[in-house]
């Protein structure tokens, strides 16, 4: 084994260790970036679904993948709130510190989102406009309930 190969193997090993460490406890900056991106995708998908509903004749082929994506992303959302990723981290985030002070309540609201997104996904699969509209309203309320309580308003 040449010297350069040893260095290569060692650095590869180091990288794997650091990746493992990251997976165990994601760096706050990474968690914040990922959750923002995740919620933006949820918001974007939800807006597009809403636009379809508002058009009066929603195209279910447009709605379905969006609703599926929303449900998958809603299910993942909680992962991106490690306890070190609040405003105390000094990083730019609108997540309030009370999220971690009221973990049980926050988790409950997040689960409401997961349920609402799943219901929306089912409604989209069924293709029933009335059901989709009702599920849209519930999902919107789930977004709002948590934002009102745990997200700093935009300025």
């Amino acid at each position: 084994m040449s010297c350069s190969k040893i260095v290569l193997a060692a650095s590869a090993g180091l990288m794997m260790v650091s990746i493992a460490a990251t997976a165990a406890a994601p760096a706050p900056a990474e968690a914040i970036a990922t959750r923002k991106a995740n919620f933006k995708e949820i918001g974007g998908a939800f807006k597009s679904i809403n636009d379809e509903i508002k058009s009066g004749a929603p195209n279910m082929n447009t709605v379905r993948p969006l609703a599926r994506d929303m449900a998958a992303r809603a299910a993942a959302a909680l992962k991106y709130f490690p306890s070190n990723s609040g405003p105390d981290s000094g990083l730019k985030t609108r997540a309030k510190a009370s999220i971690w002070a009221n973990q049980a309540d926050f988790v409950k609201l997040q689960n409401n989102l997961i349920d609402a997104a799943n219901a929306l996904n089912q409604a989209a699969t069924s293709g029933d406009v009335a059901q989709l509209t009702a599920a849209r309203n519930t999902a919107g309320q789930a977004c709002k309930a948590c934002h009102d309580k745990y997200r700093e308003p935009d300025t």
Partner: peptide, 30 residues
């Protein structure tokens, strides 16, 4: 403008994407 919950919006927000709608909402506020 589009609100953060993606549920309330101006009548022409369907012409823009979510990020642009959010930008419009922020500018609307300012």
């Amino acid at each position: 403008a589009v609100d953060v919950d993606g549920i309330e919006s101006g009548p022409f927000s369907y012409l823009v994407d979510f990020d642009t709608g959010r930008l419009a909402a922020r500018l609307h506020h300012q």
